[in-house]
Structures are given as C-alpha cells and as structure tokens.
Design a binder for these strands. Sequence first.
DNA 1: TATCGGGGCTTAAACGGTTAAGGCACTAAG
DNA 2: CTTAGTGCCTTAACCGTTTAAGCCCCGATA
Lengths: 343, 343
Amino acid sequence: MRITISDVAALAKVSTATVSYVLNDSNRVSKKTRERVLWAVEELGYQPNALAQGLVKDQTRNIALVIPDTAESVFSDPFFPELLKGIGTLVAREGYFLLLSLMSAAEDFSSILSTMISQRRVDGVILASTPRDSEVVTQVRHGKLPFTIIGPCFLSDVHSIDIDNEEGAYRAAKHLIELGHRQIGYVTGDMRFDYAVQRYRGFQRALEQEGLSSSHVYMGDATPLSGQRGAKYLIESDQGITAIACASDMVAYGVMTTARDLGYRVPADLSVIGFDDISLAQQSEVKLTTIRQPISRLGYLASENLIARLKQRNKKIEPTRQIIETELVVRDSTAPPSNVRGD
Amino acid sequence: MRITISDVAALAKVSTATVSYVLNDSNRVSKKTRERVLWAVEELGYQPNALAQGLVKDQTRNIALVIPDTAESVFSDPFFPELLKGIGTLVAREGYFLLLSLMSAAEDFSSILSTMISQRRVDGVILASTPRDSEVVTQVRHGKLPFTIIGPCFLSDVHSIDIDNEEGAYRAAKHLIELGHRQIGYVTGDMRFDYAVQRYRGFQRALEQEGLSSSHVYMGDATPLSGQRGAKYLIESDQGITAIACASDMVAYGVMTTARDLGYRVPADLSVIGFDDISLAQQSEVKLTTIRQPISRLGYLASENLIARLKQRNKKIEPTRQIIETELVVRDSTAPPSNVRGD
DNA sequence: TATCGGGGCTTAAACGGTTAAGGCACTAAG
DNA sequence: CTTAGTGCCTTAACCGTTTAAGCCCCGATA
C-alpha cells in the first residue's frame, strides 16, 4: 500500500487537515508544527495522490495535445517533433503532464477525443495542424475546456497562434525576384490545410506585384516525393524556369534531388527555396535557402497561453490571435539566374 | 456543473449503486431497470469522471511513454514518430491514454519522472531508447509499476522487446559480401546506445567470418552529417572501398550525398546499405537498400505486453524478452562492385 | 472577573465514483 | 404456516485529498 496523507499525519501527530494546510497554504500553521509535518513528509517520501487531489480540486494537471492529422505527413515531417519539444519544455516546467492524442492511431478518433474530455482527463487542450473544416474544433469547443490552436484559425472567439505564412512565402518569392529571376515555379503543400493555401497566396502576391506570371504551379502534398514530381513537371514544361519556391523544406528536398537528376545544378542552373528551416535542410549537400519558422517556439507560446488561462480559472482572458514573424535564411541553394550572372 | 452518476440515478429513479452496477457488471440488474438506466445515461450524455473512478479502483488508465534520450536524435530520426504510431494504435484501442515524458524537454527529468510515478498518474510505463547505464530504469523499477522496455536490455527480470540488431547488421554485411564486395566500410551510430554496438558487432562478425578486414570503420552518431563525414573519411583513406554499410538510414543518406559529391555514383562506384527502412529511404533519388525493422510493430507489441499485464493486475506474468526479426530489403543502392561486374 | 479576538489546530463534509453487505418481496420446499 | 432461497435493489463505507466551520486556549480588553 502507498503512503497517504494519514500516514504523514500520524507520524507528525497532527490531523490530515494540518498536513494538507502545510503542503498548500503553509502560513496558517505554526512554524513548529509545520517543520514537524515537513519532516514527516520527507521521512516517508510522501507524494499526494494526483487522483484524490484532482477529484476535490477539479483539475488533473494534464494537458492534451491533439493532432487530428489525417495524413501521414505529421510523421514524415520533422515539424511534429519540433513542436513537441517546445510544448514539452513549458508543460514540464509548469508541473503539467502531456496527454497525447493522435488521430492516425485511432479507429474512432472523435469518440476517443470526446471520451477524454468528458471523463475530465485533462484541464485544457492544444490543437495542432487541424485541417480546414475539421469537426475536431467544434468538438473540443463543445467540451467547454480552455483550448489553444496552433495554426490557421478563422474563428474569432478562439485563442490561436500561428506564423505569418502568407508573408513568409511572399518574402521567399521576393528574394528570388530580387536575385533577378523572372520565371519562377511553385510547388504547393497539401492544399487541404490552410497553411498551404496561405503560402501559395503569398507567393502569388509577390509575383503579381512585379507583373510576373504566377502560373507555374504544381499541386503537391508536402512530401519530398511530390517535390520530385513537381520539379519534373515544372522543368519539363520548358518555360525557362530558373527558380522554384516550395511550400516546405521537405518538398524543396525532393525538388533538388530531381533537379540534379535532370542535369540541373543547384543553384547555378536552378535556384530552390524552401519553407520551415528543418535541421535536415542544413545537412543536405547544397544547403537550403529557406524561410525559418520557429516551430518549437510556437509550441512553447501555445502552452504558455493555455497554462496562463488554466491558472486564472474563472477570470476570463480575452481571446487572442498571435502571429509570429518568419525570417529569410539565405544559404547556398539560391543565386542569380545564369543570364543575369553573365551580364 | 458536470453530469454525475447521481443525476443519472435520479432520472432513472434508482440508487447510484444500481447505475454503477449497470455500467460495470450489468447482469446483476433486471433487464427493465438496466434499460431505464441506460436510457438515462444516453439522455444526459453521462460519462463517469475518470478521477473518481480511478481513485476507488486505484487505476488511471494512463500509460506513460518515457523517452529519456539526451540527444536530439530522437527528434531528427523518424524512428520516434513511427514508434508512437504503433503504441498509439493499441493504447487507443484498449481505452488507455498516453502520457508523454520527454527528457529533452525537462530540466530535471528524473524528478519529473518520479513525481509522475509516485503521484500515481499512470498505471504502467513504456521505456524507449534508453541509453546504456541510464538510471531511469532503476528509477522506474523503484516505482513498483509494471513497465516494458523497447530496445536492448540486459536485466533478466524485466519485460523487454527489441529487434535483432546484431543479426540485421550481419545480413546487411553478408548481402554486400555476396555481391562480391571485399573492401567494405562501416559508419556506426551513437555508440553510447547498445543498438549501435550490436549492429557494429553484426557487421564485424560477417566480415571476419569471410576473412575480410573489418577495420574500415567511422564512428558516427546516427545523423546524416556523420554519414557525410564518414563517407569522406572512408573514401579518402583510399583503401579501395567499394561498399559502405551504415548503422541507420539517416547515416546512409549522408553517405550517399557525400559520395556523389566526391564523384562516386551509387551503386555503380559505391554500394550503400542502410538500416531501419524509414520512408525517406524510398523517396531518395537512389532508393536505398536497407534492413527493415518493423518500428511501429515494436511499439504495438510493447503496449500489448504492458496492457496484458495491467489487465491481470495481481497475477504475475513471467518476464519475457521478445526479439523481432529484421528483413533485408534490396533496392537500388547496392550492386556488384565494378571489377566483378566487368568480368 | 467576564468578554472578546484570534491563532492554531481538528472535525467532518465534500469530490464522484465502486462494492460489500443488507433488506425486501416473492416463491418453493418442508 | 414457517423457513429457506433467490432475485433485485439500496444503504453505507470507502478511496485520498481539500477546506469550511468549529473548538479550544490564551492573552488582551473592559
């Protein structure tokens, strides 16, 4: 049998109430008694039972991380581990625990999710990489728990945090234009996700602003494979494309390998720019120019937002939508096009 | 306020005990009453509070997944997401929830771990990618909870599951030898982990069995970067190496990129074989020959083992060590060496 | 001296379930 | 007509905490 508060109380020769007061709100107890209690706690190695504590306080100190991604992309993309790192850091520091809920693992995800919420297994929820029109958001909202969304979100009364995808992609395209490129291709991500749509829009805006054609586009799905196909398609369509912007680094990776296979040197014959700045991008033979998004920071801030609200309990905090800026990181995969260089 | 068992009892005009009996052990209640109770449950959308239930039953239905990896490797390696997939599948199916505990996220990991255990937040623990000599194992064992280890483990009274690393690496080397290679290099993983040591031994055994030199070795750390360095080192040492075996696919990836940079074509001038069979390996321009380890299956079986024991409660189950076989997957990155092909 | 105030502890009632034990009504057996 | 047995439900104790309310004692005040 485990050590309970009664064992401590007996050893310290006080009631369980006193022990509890010492442990929670210690200035109500005399110094002498408090020390005796703390000694007993130490002596027995007492730790309060989280369930009993939670039952009376109506809190679990658990936070759910929900990834309702239908695709495998969460798993092949290093996005997820990075995010987890940021979330895990703050959650651990604040004395919370992380309950992981992966859609891909479950036959009936929505029932598992609602079970988790209505059984009160968590105090709050972090929602990441939700596809557009996902009913998961509705469901979580219905659970009446505080929750924070990481990624695009168009609901006004919801706390969310995201990077500026549109602006990021705009900067990427702008960078290529400033290098002198005029025929620029684009390989999209999975357009069922809003981030992919937003990035595509940023690309488009930059090109149209300069009066360039933004029609060299391949619809991909965020995998390296779609990058390979995209590169093949764009290069072989033979419209003199000298640069390809990509919706993600993984896509850019695929683009680069195929470009090389087709005899194009990067960046001499073809400039490639990615989006994300995953660590792999710095380990490829041609270091990828990309748009850095602070993924783990995103996770950190989301947990911070959620935990702050959990601490307040009743006091309402006004819903916020935080947008984190991205950053252009110039490495080796982009250069002026050969005709410009020649001049 | 939430709906409790009393609300259901009131609506169904029975005592809370009856409701509980219906929900748990329904053949003790008359059909008529049972139906009325079930109707009330449905009507109110009642879900039992997990904390209250856990308190009296002394179980949480939470399982901890502990990754005490110090290195970043868990995050850059796709091993982790795959594992999660396997674990998540069974855990969800059995009505458990997954509590994630990542070392890299925590300042004081061991205190977080012991808190989690002694506060009784979980019923059991799955331990993955534990480095050799990690005190985490001791700590978990001290918690007196059932736990299962994924990966190498030399303790006899512990449940563990692993792949046959030694045999896998042996097969990889054997494959190269059978193709006709005689000068074979090896890039190791992070040798602080036993899996890396075991794989290295398998490689060594195969070569020594054939009377070949097993001294062309580069000590890596499981990253693509160390693969790049390893390739450079092995090729430039100029001992006529025609093939390189790698401790992991990520390493093999690095080896291939550098080999190509140095003007070696894969597999014409250099054969490369990996280990893991991660999905990226099939998306590279030269599809990687590798040793497949069923990572997600490993996770699945580990959870299966743990959950089976949780269901038994008191009845002891004899500790087992399961070893899963690996499989050679021949793709495009290996071929006979040019001198042999020439004949 | 009686009253009051307050510090410092304890008592006991929650929290929301489970489950052993008991009670009640009815039927079958002696 | 009692007794025993059985099916079905309820009562109440319990799990391990927290916390409002109460009690006791002591010193200060009137």
